[in-house]
C-alpha cells in the first residue's frame, strides 16, 4: 500500500545492488498478508456487530460507514506499524554489522517518495470526504441534528413528528399529531420515518438515542431536527451526551419501537388519559421560552407532587 510503499522502493536503486536485502518487498509482503487477513476478518466478523446496530435506517447506514472507514484505516495503521516494527528490528544500532547510515542529498529529500505520499494521502482523504458527504446527504442527515431548517428531508409520505424536550435533568416527549400530549416514555412505531424536533428548556443537552443512531443537541429556543426510519422492534437507550450540570450522568431513559398498530393505540389512549394535563401545558410549539427569572427555567410548577399517580405534572405558562 499506499503510504509506506514508495519510501523504500524509491530508495532501492540508490543502495548497493546485490547484498542489500529488498526491504520494500519484505515490508510490502508482510503488510499485504496482514491486511488481507485482518480486513475481511473485521468486516465479516466484527462489522455486523459494530454499534449502533441496524435498528433504524440511520443506524444501519452509519454502521456501514464506520465499517468502510475501518476497512480503509486498518491497512493504513498496519502499514505504519509494519514499517516501524521492521525498522526497529532491522536498523537498530545494537545489531552486529549494522552499516553506517548514509547521509547526503539522497537521504534528505526524495521527490518521488514525497509526491507519492502526498498523492496517496490526498486521494484517501478526498475519497473519505466525498463518501462521507454522500452518506450524509442520501441518508437525510445521517440521524444528526440539522438545525431548524433541514435541507435533506426524507421523501416518505408519512412522517411522524416527535418533539424531544431536554431539561435539567430529563427528556420529555410531545407528540403534536396526537394533541401535543407530553410523556416521559418514548414510544415509536416500526417502519416509520420519524422527525425528531429537539429543543431545550434550560441549558444545552444532547439527545442521543443510541440504537437509533440519532444525536441532536437540545438548545434552548432552537428546534433541532433529525430524521430516521425505524426498522426493527425493541428497546433502545436515550442518554444525554452534552454536559448539562449536576445530574448529567443520570440523565437517561429507555424507549421502545413497537408495531404500528400498537403505537397508534398507545398514543390515542395516552392522549385521552392525559387530556386534562395537556390543557395545562403550554400550547404545543416548536420551541419554548424559558423563564429567565428563575435558574431552572420554570417550565414545571413545583407545587405539584411529582409522584402523582398519573405521572404527569401540572405546568404553567412561561413567564417571559
Amino acid at each position: 500500500m499506499t503510504d509506506t510503499a514508495p519510501t523504500p522502493s524509491a530508495h532501492q536503486p540508490a543502495g548497493p545492488p546485490s547484498a542489500e536485502p529488498r526491504h520494500f518487498w519484505r515490508m510490502f509482503a508482510i503488510w499485504i498478508v496482514l491486511s488481507a487477513i485482518l480486513d475481511p476478518l473485521f468486516y465479516f466478523l466484527v462489522g455486523p456487530h459494530v454499534p449502533p446496530g441496524t435498528m433504524t435506517s440511520s443506524a444501519a447506514e452509519n454502521q456501514l460507514d464506520f465499517n468502510i472507514l475501518f476497512v480503509i484505516a486498518l491497512p493504513v495503521i498496519l502499514a505504519v506499524w509494519v514499517y516501524l516494527g521492521y525498522s526497529i528490528i532491522m536498523w537498530r544500532a545494537s545489531r552486529k554489522d549494522a552499516p553506517e547510515p548514509v547521509g547526503g542529498e539522497a537521504a534528505r529529500t526524495n521527490l518521488r517518495v514525497q509526491t507519492a505520499w502526498i498523492t496517496v494521502t490526498s486521494v484517501i482523504v478526498l475519497f473519505l470526504a466525498g463518501f462521507g458527504t454522500y452518506e450524509l446527504i442520501q441518508n437525510y442527515g445521517a440521524g444528526g441534528g440539522q438545525g431548524p431548517n433541514p435541507i435533506w428531508k426524507p421523501t416518505a409520505s408519512h412522517i411522524l413528528p416527535v418533539q424531544v424536550i431536554g431539561q435539567q435533568w430529563k427528556f420529555t416527549y410531545r407528540y403534536p399529531t396526537y394533541g401535543g400530549f407530553e410523556t416521559q416514555q418514548l414510544i415509536l412505531p416500526a417502519d416509520t420515518t420519524i422527525a425528531f424536533h429537539v429543543t431545550s428548556l434550560d441549558v444545552i443537552h444532547s439527545f442521543w438515542a443510541y440504537q437509533l443512531s440519532i444525536k441532536a443537541d437540545a438548545n434552548p429556543q432552537v428546534d433541532n431536527v433529525a430524521y430516521t426510519t425505524t426498522r426493527q422492534l425493541g428497546r433502545f437507550t436515550v442518554r444525554c451526551s452534552e454536559l448539562c450540570g449536576l445530574w448529567h450522568g443520570a440523565m437517561y431513559n429507555f424507549g421502545q419501537v413497537v408495531p404500528k398498530a400498537q403505537f397508534d393505540s398507545w398514543a390515542r389512549q395516552t392522549e385521552l388519559t392525559t387530556a386534562a394535563n395537556t390543557r395545562l401545558l403550554p400550547p404545543f410549539a416548536w420551541t419554548y421560552v424559558p423563564d429567565a427569572n428563575g435558574a431552572g427555567g420554570g417550565y414545571y410548577n413545583n407545587t405539584v407532587d411529582p409522584y402523582s399517580p398519573s405521572e404527569v405534572y401540572g405546568a404553567r405558562q412561561p413567564a417571559s
Binding site: T7, P8, L84, I88, W91, A93, W117, T121
Partner: peptide
C-alpha cells in the same frame, strides 16, 4: 477537517523516511 490530516500526516513521512536504513539508538 479531512484535508488537515494531509499536512498532519507529513510528520509520518518525515519520521518514516528518517528511520529508513538508519542506525537507531534506543
Amino acid at each position: 477537517t479531512e484535508l488537515i490530516s494531509i499536512p498532519t500526516g507529513f510528520i509520518f513521512l518525515v519520521g518514516m523516511g528518517t528511520l529508513y536504513k538508519a542506525k537507531i539508538r534506543f
